[in-house]
């Protein structure tokens, strides 16, 4: 009797927690869709903000986010794939060096994103950018200030652990028999990687890329000091230009606007766009990952 009651209590508690989580997700979606859907028009997606950003669209923020994630991907994916290759193919399992890299990757993954922002400000802008100006630009300020390049590179650092972990996982699903077959035919290690391992890990590399993009597309803190702009009348034309981004746009409209109430419909619609973007990217990643796991069986 007593035991039975305990079971019921625990079952109810676990059930309530699950319901709570579902409730939270559904609420977020419901509120965002209810507030954002009516305002989500083609005009909203394709126009610049107007009237102190209380009217108009979010076109520059969409373009800015797209460019930023593109540059971030170009920086993070090759670097991440190469690191994952080293960990999976070259490093001895118990070497101090490999353990150090793994520790660094894990640590990088839990560093708060605002720290990345500060690091980007200090390292990319303060150190690299300003020295580039001194050496190549005769001291004229061009690279030593926030820009889409530095913001993208900062974001690349943030997403690097995601890429490394998912690519390494994919590489490890290539059975050792395949590598042996290639090596026994007289292939070098690099030929084996290029012709057997990498072609077999394409879906994994893709998954890592997509997860990185969806993580990077929504983050605000790393670009806060390194390149995101409050408002720009024009799209970025070069790597040294600043840019507008969806996440940052939501942040400034809800906290910095002179008329927060007037921007509410825009906030909702922007949030909806950002959510749709990251959800759909994640959905693609989930499907790809599922296919890798099926293949590994």
């Amino acid at each position: 009797m007593n035991r039975n009651r305990k079971d019921i209590i625990i079952e109810s508690l676990t059930g309530i927690s699950v319901l709570l989580i579902i409730f939270i997700i559904v609420s977020i979606l419901a509120i965002t869709i209810k507030g954002g859907w009516p305002n989500l028009t083609w005009k909203f997606l394709s126009e610049f903000p107007r009237d102190g950003m209380t009217k108009g669209g979010i076109f520059p923020a969409i373009v800015g986010t797209a460019f930023m994630t593109l540059i971030m991907t170009i920086a993070a994916v090759p670097f991440g794939v190469i690191t994952a290759l080293y960990l999976a193919e070259y490093a001895k399992e118990n070497s101090v060096f490999a353990k150090t890299i793994r520790f660094a990757v894990k640590t990088l993954a839990v560093v708060p994103s605002i720290i990345f922002g500060l690091f980007g400000l200090g390292f990319f802008i303060g150190f690299i950018g300003q020295n580039m100006d001194k050496i190549f630009n005769g001291g004229v300020l061009k690279w030593g200030q926030p820009s889409i390049l530095w913001a993208s590179l900062t974001m690349a650092l943030l997403t690097l652990p995601v890429v490394i972990v998912s690519v390494e996982e994919a590489i490890r699903t290539i059975p050792v028999e395949m590598r042996e077959a290639s090596l026994a035919l007289g292939a070098t290690k690099w030929q084996t990687i290029k012709r057997v391992v990498l072609p077999g890990s394409v879906t994994g590399i893709l998954t890592g890329t997509i997860l990185a993009i969806s993580r990077g597309a929504g983050e605000v803190a790393p670009i806060l000091f390194t390149g995101a702009a409050y408002y720009l009348a024009d799209l970025p034309h070069s790597l040294s230009d600043q840019f507008m981004s969806l996440g940052y746009h939501i942040y400034i409209m809800s906290t910095q606007s002179s008329n927060v109430d007037a921007t509410l419909p825009i906030q909702f619609a922007t949030t909806l766009v950002l959510l749709l973007l990251t959800f759909s990217l994640n959905a693609v990643a989930v499907v790809l990952r599922y296919r890798i796991r099926q293949k590994a069986k």
Partner: peptide, 30 residues
Amino acid sequence: NLRKKIGMIFQKSNPFAKSVYENIAFGPRI
């Protein structure tokens, strides 16, 4: 070079996830 002189057949057949043609052409290609 040593391994080019010595073929190896494994317990579990291990063709690459490629066409028959590409499997055979793998060695000549490398």
